[in-house]
């Protein structure tokens, strides 16, 4: 399928700080694409550049295979960093301005207010809204043009648990209509729960990108012992082609396997060497430890 957004070698410098370093990612159509990284890793900078509010120091990007223009902007609904509205206007009046800027009819305003649960407060001034309501209004504004792509930067910021669950459901519902969603978040759990694809950023550098299932499923750990002395197990393990790392840890041998291999392959290989393993434990890495590992790689 065609790529909705293609980024090639994007860089951004703020004085001496390299906020973004040669970032290249592509967002497939229909995906929920998570941009994951700790605070200050360059997520908002990336989105700011592709949304035309920040000037890149280098690199290029295309939306729908075209350079950014007024017509491509109209196919994108975006919420960047904070909800940006006029505090002295009501929620509805603010959305009228958004609709005028996007050159779309006002008829969808009641519907989007209903979607985000603000219909009852549409006549209240924006400055009187709670943080969660402001965030909802920003999501409503992003939905206003019925865009093909939704760009959401930390959309659950400031929401209570119920609101977070609602927004996640909303994202899944919109995605079910065949739309593409780009979601920046520092919450691994959020990305894991809703995204189909992800890119992990750290200090402005791309660490890994691809379908969530393949990134999260790789590198299971296998612990073995028994059947032979530890040294022998270690020696054998190091000869196996599908083992990327083997080491002795707490009277056990810890193996890191290549993707798409599992515990039974280990068992079969040792048995072929005449060793019947006493114990074989496969441990899925916790999401947090995988995430920490990804962002800590090359950080020496």
């Amino acid at each position: 399928m065609a790529d909705i957004l293609n980024i090639q070698g994007l860089s951004k410098r703020y004085g001496s700080v390299q906020a973004l370093d040669q970032l290249s990612i592509s967002v497939p159509q229909g995906s929920i694409y998570g941009l994951l990284g700790p605070n200050g890793s360059g997520k908002t900078t990336t989105l700011g550049i592709v949304l035309d509010v920040l000037n890149a120091t280098g690199g290029s990007f295309q939306w729908f295979g075209q350079p950014l223009s007024k017509s491509t902007k109209r196919r994108i609904g975006a919420l960047l960093e904070t909800p940006n509205f006029y505090p002295y206007l009501t929620g509805e009046e603010n959305l009228r301005i958004t609709a005028d800027v996007k050159r779309i009819d006002h008829s969808r305003i009641p519907a989007v207010l209903e979607t985000v649960g603000l219909a009852g407060r549409k006549h209240s001034k924006f400055k009187g809204y709670s943080l969660g309501m402001k965030q909802r209004l920003a999501i409503a504004a992003a939905l206003l043009g019925d865009p093909e792509v939704l760009v959401l930067d930390e959309p659950t910021n400031g929401l209570d648990p119920e609101g977070i669950a609602e927004v996640r459901q909303l994202i899944l519902d919109i995605s079910a209509q065949g739309k593409t969603i780009i979601l920046a978040s520092h919450l691994l759990d959020e990305v894991e729960k809703v995204c189909t694809h992800m890119a992990v950023l750290r200090s402005g550098k791309l660490k890994v990108q691809g379908p969530v299932s393949s990134i999260m499923a790789t590198n299971d750990l296998v612990f073995i012992n028994g059947g032979a002395p530890l040294e022998q197990l270690l020696q054998v393990a190091r000869t196996l082609p599908f083992v990327s790392d083997a080491r002795a840890v707490h009277q056990q041998i810890q193996l890191t396997l290549h993707p798409n291999t599992d515990g039974s392959a280990v068992n079969r290989a040792f048995f072929a060497q005449g060793i019947a393993l006493g114990q074989l434990v496969v441990r899925k890495k916790s999401l947090e430890s995988q995430f920490m590992e990804i962002i800590k790689a090359d950080q020496v």
Partner: peptide, 11 residues
Amino acid sequence: FRTLRQQVIDG
């Protein structure tokens, strides 16, 4: 209000 930014994002 950061509305300049939002209006550029919106078109």
